[in-house]
Design a protein around this nucleic acid. Sequence first.
DNA 1: CTCGTTCTGTACTGATCGATACGCAAGTAT
DNA 2: ATACTTGCGTATCGATCAGTACAGAACGAG
Lengths: 204, 204
Amino acid sequence: METHRKGKTAVGRPRGFDAEEALERAMRVFWEQGYEGASLTDLTEAMGITRTSMYAAFGNKEELFRKALERYTEGPASYAARAAEEPTARDAATAFLTGSVRATTRPDSPAGCLGVQSALAAGGPGRNARDALIAWRNEGVAALRDRFVRAVDEGDLPPGADPGVLARYLMTVANGIAVQAASGATREELQPVADAALRDWPPA
Amino acid sequence: METHRKGKTAVGRPRGFDAEEALERAMRVFWEQGYEGASLTDLTEAMGITRTSMYAAFGNKEELFRKALERYTEGPASYAARAAEEPTARDAATAFLTGSVRATTRPDSPAGCLGVQSALAAGGPGRNARDALIAWRNEGVAALRDRFVRAVDEGDLPPGADPGVLARYLMTVANGIAVQAASGATREELQPVADAALRDWPPA
DNA sequence: CTCGTTCTGTACTGATCGATACGCAAGTAT
DNA sequence: ATACTTGCGTATCGATCAGTACAGAACGAG
């Protein structure tokens, strides 16, 4: 018994929709309305498919959310991974905050950050989604810390610098930017905030 | 016909519970589970009263939430108003961030900030709660800005300082601290973040 | 063609949502 | 004691929730 699709060998009725496109639509609904605020009706209407097709393709609401979060990480939030590849710690920090300002204030996307606002607090059924986002944010802090540990090694952060505090600090500011963007703050209002946050960055 | 209570002149059956105590319990449920995640059953069980009593005393879920937010402002979030009364802008900024670290990491209270996490994103029925919190956060920014306008006047901020950017910056960091606290960050991890955010504060 | 497999649409499940109708309990006022 | 007013408890409302059973539709294999 084979449950997974194996490349081009398609047997049975072919899918009548683009799964990537549908996931993109679902991601935006979660982004705008949050995990608990997004009903299956909201989701499937935006995805352009029926409940049955959604369950067949994605499992259930929770798995759909996890896949939407993955897509978010590789799409709108990909600036974070790119920032870590900058040559110096300062460049990485700058790219990270500037990227967060831009990603949370794109005119064609919901305001704010899916990883922050889609499940910050939740009741019983939403706990798993909330915990997934907590892990997601903490992974982000860990990635920044690793980058800054390397920076101390490479000498573009002073030996006394604390990579853990710097990483937590940057993620805190980025999270705050996401909240402010969800509150209606514009790109023009938030970029100076990001600049202010970086003004005291440790010199190499 | 008199619909409001008039002090001690109580006619009819007296209320069998303490409304302030019940509101305190409701506030904590909203704080932990968010507006949409807190069901009437969750709320009334925590409040120790029946649905009927809740509707009679507070109106409906949305009004209960608004009153819980007021109580939160005057209780756990009262550090914000106190910070504005500090003698200098620097003291105010320090008190504001330190207060936010302490309020979001109290061991006997839910982690994070009700004003951030109880309705950052929401679907249809929760929109009003979300909008109320957006206004609440923006009022906080405005209050900080007013304080820093005064500080420029009084000379404990340099003439070139931008009170609007400083206010937005502080609220952004505080919001980020709230998100980090909701992610499990401890007081010991967040206080250094607040310190880092204040390191570059404009000199008098 | 027929068969097996997979996807789609309708219609529905039990559970839970916020909110209420109604009758009784518990007070004050006369 | 009686009338009036208000809070409380039960039992329930229609709407919506996430999730599914089932039958037909659309494909490849034989």
